[in-house]
Nucleic acid binder design. Structure first.
Lengths: 124, 124
DNA sequence: CACTTGTATTGATGAGCGTCAACATAGACA
DNA sequence: TGTCTATGTTGACGCTCATCAATACAAGTG
């Protein structure tokens, strides 16, 4: 089934890529709604196994990797699958089946938006 | 008591500020140890209330705020205190009592290190 | 000293999460 | 069709977490 809920940090822009959900953390206090959205992403990265999986995908050639390439993180196969699903639901990864294998990929714009969230004040 | 454990993402550098714990996520797959460290920080920001508290401190004048300035986030006072403690243990905030009030502050270098962790590959 | 305000801790409760074994599904190939 | 490999889902278990009321601690004021 493909009813996996995706509640991304970002919303698709008309042109290309995505647009950040929230202003930088340091710009002004986040509202409850903004915090709810952004916390979902941080939470998804808040588990060591998920962080390794995410890093493995993000650092793989072309920003994309087969599950078989990244599943050596010390937990069982169902657990890997479970964590990848969580990362997908958080909007951090997308997946696509090509023949026998399933490939996960990270949108560069997602990384960019996360970086902006943590941006330092320009003036300093 | 002041035995609050602090397990920071960063370690103090000799010169000034701090040095990042880990290479950018996209550079290479994180090791288990690196992931353990970095996930602690993401986990700390993975709760909406904590994220709002952190943002409130980070965006406050001088990167510092009294608890009384930021505790209007819709939860009880003990819960606010609990979350601030968690942020402290994650190395994201420091605190200091000055007279009646307690001030929390965020190290700019911590924000910078987090940003680097999410940095995009230079070539792209 | 007593009293008030600001902040931290304790203890309890209910919800959520990470993990696995077992099973299910999808595609490739003979 | 049957079988093999790759991946996802189900259900259960133990543990962690977010929250609160009650209480304790700290510092100021009278």
């Amino acid at each position: 089934m493909s009813n996996t809920k995706v509640l991304p940090l970002l919303e698709p822009a008309d042109g290309q890529g995505v647009v950040p959900c929230c202003p930088p953390l340091t710009e002004r206090p986040m509202t409850a709604e903004e915090a709810e959205t952004a916390a979902r992403m941080f939470k998804a990265l808040g588990d060591p196994v998920r962080l390794r999986l995410f890093s493995a995908v993000a650092s793989h050639e072309g920003g994309e990797a087969c599950v078989c390439d990244i599943s050596d993180v010390g937990v069982s196969q169902p657990t890997v699958s479970h964590h990848l699903k969580k990362l997908k639901e958080a909007g951090l990864l997308t997946s696509e089946r090509r023949g026998t294998w399933v490939y996960y990929r990270v949108e560069p714009s997602v990384l960019a938006a996360m970086g902006k969230l943590l941006a330092l004040p320009t003036a300093a």
